[in-house]
């Protein structure tokens, strides 16, 4: 077994790190201070420069 990783913050950066590690088969504990993950990006209507929906 590999060692677990702790990720602090569940915005786009924390979510991406967590998914990358989890896909490598590593166990991740993702800590988010707010009731839900998503961070600032979840508040955005769409994102530049493609105007894709943020969530």
């Amino acid at each position: 077994m590999s060692k677990d990783i702790l990720v602090i913050g569940g915005g786009i950066a924390g979510m991406q790190s967590s998914l990358d590690l989890a896909d490598m088969g590593i166990k991740v504990h993702l800590i988010e201070k707010l009731p839900s993950i998503g961070g600032k990006m979840a508040q955005l209507d769409k994102t530049f420069p493609t105007n894709d929906c943020a969530i």
Binding site: M15, D23, K27, L30, I31, E32, A42
Partner: peptide, 26 residues
Amino acid sequence: MLDVGRHPNIELLAYSEVEKVEGEAG
């Protein structure tokens, strides 16, 4: 976001904060 919530290798600890860290790399 959904993928994070569903991934079997991710333990999601929302509404949580780090209180103390001890030790070293590894």
